[in-house]
């Protein structure tokens, strides 16, 4: 029979496994999208058919191999999502928050993550495909990737509210506000297909070059905070020990000075 501490250690090991899978998933995502397939930074919107054919030709093997990797390992996204959902369940807030987040991201992952892989692979697998069809697949791929930002933004808001009203100190409050920062950048990108060019187009200075670094920072932060959460997790239902966040050094001074 396992001791209580043995069971706890075992349960934590499972969370650590999920955490490492999360790290691998986001690493793989970055390498595939930015390095292999070169779908990020995105191609220009409103390319004409011949330009689209050239875009696909330029990325032939990168797209096939890169998105092939996603087709095999893309399921890791579910583990990452499950870990975040578990952390929201650990909060003192209603389970409605965790379920909403889970359902939202699980559904949005199809158009927002998988579909571009399908569309771009279809676009590149037959080099002699009619240019107009290639253009259609190109538009569909980027629109599904970009247009679903609205769904993800609601997810950020759900996580934000959960963090701010949580009494169990699962995440520091500043992470709640960082969700707001991230959500506000996603507002910007959601209607980007209106713009054929310019800073707000999905490949634009604002649409891509500001918003994606913000998203990258946000992702790095929550991966770090998930690690911190697992370290403090006690599998109970009450408050966790205070997070090891950047304000902890300032906080004793804040507490001493008073409200």
């Amino acid at each position: 029979m396992k001791s209580e501490s043995g069971r706890l250690r075992g349960a934590k090991r499972e969370l650590w496994l999920a955490w490492y899978v999360t790290v691998v998933f986001y690493g793989m995502y970055s390498v595939v999208f930015f390095g292999l397939s070169r779908t990020q930074p995105p191609g220009r919107p409103w390319l004409d058919p011949d330009q689209t054919v050239a875009w696909f030709a330029d990325r032939h093997w990168g797209l096939l191999i890169g998105f092939g990797v996603i087709f095999v390992l893309g399921g890791f996204s579910a583990v990452a999502l499950a870990l975040i959902t578990h952390s929201i369940r650990r909060m003192s807030v209603s389970p409605v928050f965790a379920y909403s987040y889970l359902i939202l991201y699980a559904i949005a992952a199809i158009p927002g993550f998988m579909y571009i892989c399908v569309a771009m692979t279809a676009g590149v697998m037959r080099p002699n495909r009619a240019p107009i069809a290639a253009q259609w697949l190109y538009d569909l791929g980027f629109l599904s990737f970009v247009g679903t930002m609205g769904v993800f933004l609601i997810g950020s808001l759900i996580w934000m509210i959960a963090v701010l009203i949580d009494d169990n100190r699962v995440f520091p409050k500043w992470f709640g506000y960082l969700n707001l920062v991230n959500a506000l950048t996603e507002v910007v990108i959601a209607p980007s297909w209106i713009f054929q060019r310019g800073v707000l187009a999905y490949n634009g200075a604002i649409g891509f070059w500001v918003n994606v670094p913000v998203f990258g920072l946000y992702t790095g932060v929550f991966i770090y905070l998930l690690r911190d959460f697992i370290q403090r997790e006690d599998f109970g239902t009450g408050p966790l020990p205070a997070p090891a966040d950047v304000w902890r050094r300032a906080r004793p001074a804040v507490e001493a000075v008073g409200a």
Partner: peptide, 23 residues
């Protein structure tokens, strides 16, 4: 000498200001 409000909100102010500055 007292801290005006929650330090976490101030972090939001700083980060959002930097995002706006980039815009």
């Amino acid at each position: 000498e007292r801290f005006p409000g929650d330090p976490d909100m101030w972090l939001f102010v700083v980060v959002e200001s930097l995002v706006f500055t980039s815009y």
